[in-house]
Amino acid sequence: MSPAARLLIAARALRAFGDGVVALLLPLHLTALGFSPVQVGALTTATLLGSAALTLLVGLVSHRLAPRALLFAACGLMLATGLAFAGVKDFWVLMLVGFVGTLNPSGGDVSPFLPLEQSLLAHAGPDADRTKLFARYSLTGSLAAAAGALALGVFDRLGRGVGLDGLQIGRGLFLLYGGIGLAVALIYRQLPKIAPEAEPPRTPLGPSRPQVLRLAALFSLDSFGGGFIVQSLLALWLFRTFGLSLQAAAAFFFWAGVLTAFSQLAAGRLAKRIGLVNTMVFTHIPAQLCLIAAAFAPNLPVALTLLLMRASLSAMDVPARTSYVMAIVTPAERAAAASVTNVPRSLASALSPSLAGVLMTASPFAWPLVIGGGLKIAYDLALLGLFSRVKPPEEQASA
């Protein structure tokens, strides 16, 4: 890998570790503050809406400002978010901070960092290695997020061992999250500077606009379904339905993250055999069937087994999806395409957590899992129907 690729992947790893901690910490911290599932869902919605707004802003200005400057600004916002969540108890203030900050309750990467890193990474290697590079990027992020989830259980045990209560531990971990923003900024400082004449051009969407907009609409459907089962709400369902302990939840989300991470290594090889679109669809549908089946699980072991089976398949589409978007647009449009496809996804995923919170309050049955899985299957079928014949350059060359 090039030095730039190594640095971007290292930054992704640190951010993902912080996301893995706070995605599992958030419902516990908010519950300890006395908030209801409806309020937890509403705050989750606020954080995702804010991420969408920030990502849209990045898309509007990314062709005018240097990517490193935007990345530094996002790091400063990450620091401010951690400090605010560590010190604030009022629900409405937290709603505001959640909206304007970088907090990520999904366990994946929904943030203004994402389109900037994706566009830089797409230029960090040859087209033939693009899917493999994005697979490593996703693998590293998933492993780091899994480690963050596992670390939460360790931090909780250590904190209680020295006499701290849950709220004190949570405040300390939000301070850690803010500190990670500073550490990521130090990594970005080492990114090699690109001479103006060698810098890849960055323009708004042009000839690729119709295809990008169609993909954005489909990704929105997928993310709307995913918003019903973001990691914070899935953890809350496991806590409430089966009485899962924090340590057991941390271990579960760690192993789910490990399975998710290593499954993405296969994405590049599978895409070379059956194509990027087929890789996205034919791994995603079985994962959603496992999710729906988990809603009917009679006990905790069966539910966790089905969710682990889902984890082993559900993210193989992530590097394939990113690579596909970067492949079917011109190089100059990549930053704009990354933002345009991520903004609707963030907006759509922001709408459903509040609905999931209401459903969890109104009924003990796991309606969010069934609805989320069904919507994701509808997305898979639509993607296959609309884009199975739109081939990236490397697939056209081998055809």
Score class of each variant (00 low, 15 high):
Pro105Asp: 15
Lys89Phe: 14
Gly76Arg: 01
Gly108Cys: 12
Thr81Cys: 11
Gly82Gln: 05
Gly101Phe: 02
Ala74Gln: 07
Ala74Glu: 12
Thr102Met: 13
Ala73Ile: 07
Leu94Pro: 00
Val61Asn: 02
Leu71Pro: 05
Gly76Lys: 01
Ala74Cys: 10
Val97Asn: 09
Trp92Lys: 05
Phe99Met: 07
Gly82Met: 03
Trp92Cys: 08
Leu71Ser: 06
Leu114Phe: 13
Phe99Cys: 05
Gly98Met: 03
Trp92Glu: 02
Thr102Ser: 15
Leu96Phe: 11
Ala66Lys: 14
Val97Pro: 07
Phe113Ile: 06
Ser111Cys: 09
Thr81Ala: 12
Met78Arg: 14
Asp109Asn: 12
Phe85Ser: 09
Ser62Pro: 04
Leu71Thr: 04
Ala73Tyr: 06
Phe113Arg: 01
Phe91Tyr: 10
Cys75Tyr: 05
Leu65Val: 13
Ala66Cys: 10
Gly98Thr: 01
Cys75Met: 05
Gly101Ala: 04
Asp109Met: 06
Ala66Met: 09
Pro105Ala: 15
Pro67Met: 09
Leu77Pro: 13
Ser111Phe: 03
Leu83Ser: 11
Pro115Met: 13
Leu103Trp: 03
Phe72Pro: 09
Val97Lys: 04
Leu96Pro: 05
Phe113Thr: 05
Arg68Lys: 14
Ala86Lys: 12
Cys75Arg: 01
Val97Phe: 11
Ser106Ala: 15
Phe72Gln: 11
Val88Lys: 08
Met78Leu: 14
Ser62His: 12
Trp92Gly: 05
Ser106Tyr: 08
Leu77Asn: 14
Thr81Lys: 08
Leu103Thr: 01
Asn104Gly: 06
Gly98His: 00
Thr81Glu: 14
Gly87His: 15
Ala80Arg: 00
Asp90Cys: 08
Phe99His: 04
Trp92His: 05
Ala84Ile: 00
Val88Leu: 13
Val61Ser: 03
Asp90Ala: 13
Leu79Lys: 00
Gly59Ala: 10
Trp92Leu: 12
Pro67Leu: 09
Pro115Gln: 11
Ala80Leu: 03
Phe113His: 05
Ser111Ala: 13
Leu70His: 00
Phe99Gln: 03
Gly59His: 04
Phe85Tyr: 09
Leu71Lys: 06
Leu70Trp: 02
Val97Cys: 12
